[in-house]
Write a protein that binds this DNA or RNA. Structure first.
Lengths: 92, 92
DNA sequence: AATGGTTACGGATCCCGTAACGATC
DNA sequence: GATCGTTACGGGATCCGTAACCATT
């Protein structure tokens, strides 16, 4: 499990499409597809249903999505907080 | 920024010592030391003060630690939630 | 010289992109 | 046969561990 995989998952969930998500992430389809497969493998469950149109979230995927967003938001908050602390001490 | 780096940071923060944290993580000192340096580099700030005894958290490090723990807890929660959803649907 | 963190270096592993493939309409 | 996702494969980047180094006591 890596933050990259989580970001990839969120992008695919939001786009419903590996190709579009890949473009959004400045990546090609194969690595992105592998991220999702690795995640599903690690969690032991399918997160998406593969349809002829693209990818649709399964219930496990919807549950994971909520956590995934929180994780990424928390990472952002961590970075901003540290920058804030540093700025408050005039940038050393 | 990676989950591995965050885990490393928490271990060093809790042990106050790269060597002990390394043992706890089943790793050697050099890679662990590099994780911390990479994190500090990426955040643009020192997180620890290097003392002759080991590593002591700086204010930026203390702030980061709170977020780091929340991130790791959230990742755990994500895994457990997905496993729970799957179990509730009799294990597909 | 002992202790603790960091840098050098080499080999294994990982990971991306191109190309080829498989399945569905 | 067009559209999507996935698998094969090769080359570059990453990352660990051993060894050597530097600083403090």
């Amino acid at each position: 499990m890596s933050l990259t995989h989580i970001q990839s998952f969120v992008a695919v969930a939001e786009e419903g499409h590996v190709g579009r998500a890949a473009r959004r992430l400045h990546l090609t389809q194969p690595p992105l597809s592998r991220h999702i497969l690795a995640l599903e493998d690690e969690l032991g469950t399918r997160l998406f249903e593969r349809t002829p149109r693209g990818m649709r979230l399964l219930p496990a995927g919807e549950a994971f999505l909520r956590h995934a967003r929180r994780i990424l938001a928390e990472v952002d908050a961590a970075v901003h907080t540290v920058r804030g602390v540093t700025a408050g001490r005039q940038g050393a």
